[in-house]
Simulated assay, not measured.
Amino acid sequence: MTASTFAASSIDAPLVRRLIAAQFPDWSDLDVLPIEPGGWDNRTFRLGDDMTARLPSAERYVEQVEKEHLWLPQLAPQLPLPIPMPLAKGMPGEGFPWPWSVYRWQPGETLAVKRVDDLALLARDLTSFLHALMRADATEGPLPGDHNFHRGGPPAFYDEETRRALRLLEAQIDTEAAQAVWEAALAAPFRGTPVWFHGDIAWGNLLVEDGRLSAVIDFGTSGIGDPACDLAIAWTFFSGDAREVFRDGMAFDRGTWARARGWTLWKALIVVAGMTGAPASERTRQRSVIDAVLEDHRRFG
Rank of each mutant, 00 (worst) to 15 (best):
S28A: 15
G141D: 01
G48E: 13
F246S: 06
R212Q: 15
G249D: 09
F190M: 08
G249N: 09
A53K: 05
G48Y: 09
E170D: 13
G153A: 04
D146Q: 14
V113E: 15
D200T: 06
I290R: 11
P99T: 15
A292N: 04
L169E: 09
D26G: 14
P14F: 12
R298F: 01
R164W: 00
M275S: 10
A132R: 05
F300M: 08
A21H: 04
R43V: 02
E282L: 02
V216K: 11
G95C: 02
G301W: 12
G255D: 15
F157C: 06
M134Q: 15
G277V: 01
P92N: 11
E66C: 10
M51F: 09
E160D: 15
R164V: 01
A156S: 09
A112S: 15
L79G: 12
A165Q: 08
P14N: 04
E36A: 11
G93H: 14
G152Q: 11
E161N: 08
L30M: 03
V195R: 11
W105N: 10
A88F: 14
L213V: 00
W105V: 03
L19V: 14
P80V: 09
W266Y: 11
T175K: 04
E66G: 14
W105T: 08
R104C: 10
D296E: 14
E244Q: 14
R243K: 15
L213S: 03
D241W: 09
I35V: 14
E94H: 10
P189H: 04
I270S: 06
A171R: 14
H198A: 06
H131V: 00
G204D: 13
D210C: 02
A120V: 13
T276G: 06
I233G: 05
N205P: 00
P34K: 10
F252S: 04
V271K: 13
A184S: 12
P144I: 00
A171D: 15
F252D: 02
E282T: 02
N42V: 01
W27K: 05
W98I: 00
Q23P: 05
N205G: 01
S4D: 07
E36N: 07
V181T: 04
M85R: 11
D117Q: 09
V272R: 15
A138S: 15
L294G: 00
K267V: 05
A180R: 13
W27E: 10
L111T: 08
P142H: 07
F24G: 01
W100E: 12
S239R: 15
A268F: 01
S222H: 03
L121Y: 05
A58R: 08
D29A: 13
Y103R: 10
F300W: 12
V289K: 08
F238N: 03
A53T: 08
R247H: 06
A76R: 13
A3K: 03
A8H: 11
V216M: 12
